[in-house]
């Protein structure tokens, strides 16, 4: 039961990619204001009309027509994350989310990168956001806040990596985006398309009525944060370097032929010579380069590695200590 409960909590609130109280109500407020039969009230203003005015009108400078390869990682919770730099600072992990109407930066991330929340507006302007792989946007309105989904997931460490914000419609719609979970990059092509920013009613900072069920969902964030105290936050994944032997191999030879031995390398220390044939690594036969690389998978700098070599009609068993570099 104790193990099951959190799972249900996680699965439940995250079905919608993102839809927080504030934006929902901001949108709804706008819609209500435009109900048929009513004159549009003058109080309704676009999300900082200044933003559009300030953006670059030259399509070339906006990168229109350019196609980018955007690396992403799939989190343990099946979320697509891309790295971004905001106003040159970062990087931060942002969730690609067509279920989100806007761009959200978590308060902690905003603080870390020095993005001051606007005191006068619902929106805060990002002067420039760079996405890993090359795409960028200028004068992008964002909302600095902590949606309950992110608070909850991050507190539990569920994604295996912290999620620092959300890329919704206002960023994504400016690109044609191709996603293929079997490849490790998305393809983004900058469109000559500047979607309308979401509207908010001027002066409406706090929603008036929050549906009870959304209120309950909002509670999941703090609740899971509290729960993480008992279950323990999951540490992020550790990325380790593989160790190096310092030898080069012929392109296609069977058995593998050593073509070069780097100076001051473990291979040189063990007396390996160009022309030697590589038969086994740690008692695994290595027929080709891929097999040899796989055999080195668990090898870290300072790990001991045994090699079986053939030199002329002689078989040599050598022990090497891997080193740093590659």
């Amino acid at each position: 039961m104790t193990r099951c409960l959190p799972v249900s909590l996680v699965v439940l609130p995250r079905q919608v990619g993102w839809l927080t109280r504030t934006t929902l109500l901001a949108t709804l407020t706008w819609l209500l204001a435009f109900q048929p039969g009513q004159a549009a009230p003058p109080a309704v203003a676009p999300a900082q009309e200044l933003l559009r005015a300030a953006s670059n009108n030259d399509p070339k400078e906006r990168g229109v027509g350019t196609t980018y390869q955007v690396p992403y990682r799939l989190s343990d919770t099946n979320h697509f994350l891309v790295r971004v730099r905001i106003n040159g600072r970062g990087p931060s992990n942002f969730l690609v989310d067509t279920g989100a109407p806007i761009v959200v930066v978590s308060t902690e991330t905003a603080k870390k990168i020095g993005l001051e929340p606007s005191k006068t507006s619902f929106w805060t302007t990002i002067n420039r956001i760079d996405f890993e792989g090359g795409p960028f946007l200028e004068n992008l309105p964002c909302r600095i806040e902590d949606p309950y989904q992110l608070v909850g997931m991050n507190a539990m460490g569920l994604p295996g990596v912290s999620i620092d914000g959300i890329l919704g419609f206002t960023a994504l719609a400016r690109f044609r985006i191709t996603m293929d979970p079997t490849t490790d990059r998305m393809i983004w092509t900058r469109l000559d398309f500047e979607p309308r920013d979401p509207f908010v009613s001027a002066g409406v900072e706090r929603p008036r009525e929050v549906p009870a069920e959304l209120k309950v969902m909002e509670a999941f964030g703090p609740m899971m944060k509290l729960m993480s105290v008992f279950t323990g936050k999951q540490p992020e994944e550790k990325r380790l370097e593989r160790g190096s032997l310092g030898l080069e191999l012929a392109d296609s030879s069977s058995p593998l032929t050593i073509t070069a031995v780097w100076p001051d390398s473990p291979a040189q220390a063990a007396g390996i010579q160009p022309g030697d044939r590589l038969l086994e690594i740690n008692n695994q036969r290595v027929a080709d380069f891929d097999a040899a690389r796989r055999a080195l998978d668990p090898i870290r700098p300072n790990s001991h590695v045994t090699l079986k070599l053939q030199r002329g009609d002689q078989t040599l068993d050598l022990e090497l200590q891997a080193t740093r570099g590659f």
């Binding site: 460490g157 994944e237 380790l240 593989r242």
Partner: peptide, 16 residues
């Protein structure tokens, strides 16, 4: 991930 939490051993991945 939840089960992992009890041991708090981080996931490790060697980059090859």
């Amino acid at each position: 991930r939840m089960t992992l939490g009890s041991s708090r051993k981080p996931l490790e991945r060697v980059l090859n």
